[in-house]
Computed example of a mutant assay.
Amino acid sequence: MDPRVLIAKRAAQELKDGQLVNLGFGMPTQASNYLPVGVNVMFHAENGVFGVGPRPRPADAKADMTNAGSEPVTLVAGAAIMDLATSLGAMRKGVLDVTILGALEVDQLGNIANWAVKRNGKWWPGIGGAMDLCYGTKTVIACLMHTDRNGESKVLKRCSLPLTGKGCVKTIITDKAVFDVGTQGLILKEHAPGVTLADIKACTQADFSVAANFGEMKL
């Protein structure tokens, strides 16, 4: 299975019936394709939509109906469209139950860095609404590849990139593992198919304990 699909499928398993859910750019937006049977949620796009529906057919796509990543969307019954300021206000106020965010790095304190890397001496691209989501959402789930292109861990003791949110992440989902962020650090809950505990230890910089019910990812 494509590792990004695996991450999106596993992230979808975290969602519960009736929740208001924001999906960040990239892998998180794909989680809507893998909702468990019987789970109905209301998806939010930070550019100003509550009630984002399935991706339309190319012939039905409309240039003025997109999510925050400029991907075409449809609307479900009961959807609400608003200006960006109202949408950001809802995010800050705590209306959302869950946000699933992509990440560049996460760490054992529940910190997340997802907005900037240094290119030609400048931080790029910009913070967007992720900071508002981190501090205004009840549950933040971070999704990322476990290692970078050089095989170095992206699940760290401390994030090295500028933080988006401090101590806000509750669950970390990678292509190799699922961690909960506990009061005493990371707790390894699940491994991806074909990945062993030894594999995870070898590619994880962060300290973690292993849950008593540690087992394979539920997909």
Rank of each mutant, 00 (worst) to 15 (best):
G18Q: 12
Q19Y: 12
Q19E: 15
L20Y: 10
L20H: 09
V21E: 07
N22H: 13
N22F: 05
L23A: 09
L23V: 02
G24P: 10
F25Y: 15
F25N: 14
G26K: 01
M27I: 14
M27W: 13
M27P: 06
P28W: 12
P28E: 06
P28L: 01
T29D: 00
Q30Y: 09
Q30L: 13
A31L: 03
A31Q: 09
A31I: 02
A31K: 10
N33Q: 12
N33V: 01
Y34D: 05
Y34G: 04
Y34P: 00
L35M: 07
L35V: 00
P36R: 10
V37Q: 14
G38R: 13
G38N: 14
V39A: 11
V39Q: 05
V39L: 13
N40M: 04
N40E: 11
N40F: 03
N40V: 06
V41T: 13
M42D: 05
M42N: 10
F43Q: 02
F43N: 02
H44K: 04
E46Q: 05
E46S: 15
N47S: 08
N47Q: 10
N47H: 15
F50A: 03
G51D: 04
G51H: 05
G51N: 03
G51M: 02
V52K: 04
G53E: 07
R55G: 00
R55L: 00
P56T: 00
P56M: 03
P56I: 00
R57F: 04
R57M: 13
R57W: 05
P58M: 05
P58Q: 01
P58A: 06
A59G: 02
A59I: 09
A59T: 14
D60W: 07
D60S: 08
D60E: 15
A61M: 07
K62E: 15
K62V: 00
A63F: 11
A63L: 12
D64A: 03
D64P: 07
D64L: 02
D64M: 02
M65P: 05
M65L: 15
T66F: 06
T66D: 07
N67Q: 08
A68H: 15
A68T: 01
A68Q: 14
S70L: 03
S70G: 05
S70R: 04
S70V: 05
E71C: 06
V73D: 02
V73E: 08
V73G: 05
T74I: 02
T74W: 09
L75D: 02
V76T: 11
V76S: 00
A77K: 12
G78D: 06
G78Y: 08
G78K: 10
G78P: 08
A80L: 04
I81M: 11
I81S: 06
I81C: 10
M82D: 12
D83I: 04
D83K: 03
L84Q: 09
L84W: 14
L84H: 07
L84R: 15
T86M: 12
T86I: 11
S87P: 11
S87W: 02
S87N: 08
S87H: 05
S87L: 06
S87D: 08
L88R: 14
L88N: 14
L88Q: 15
G89P: 15
G89Y: 04
A90Q: 12
M91P: 00
R92K: 15
R92S: 13
K93W: 06
K93D: 07
K93Y: 09
K93E: 09
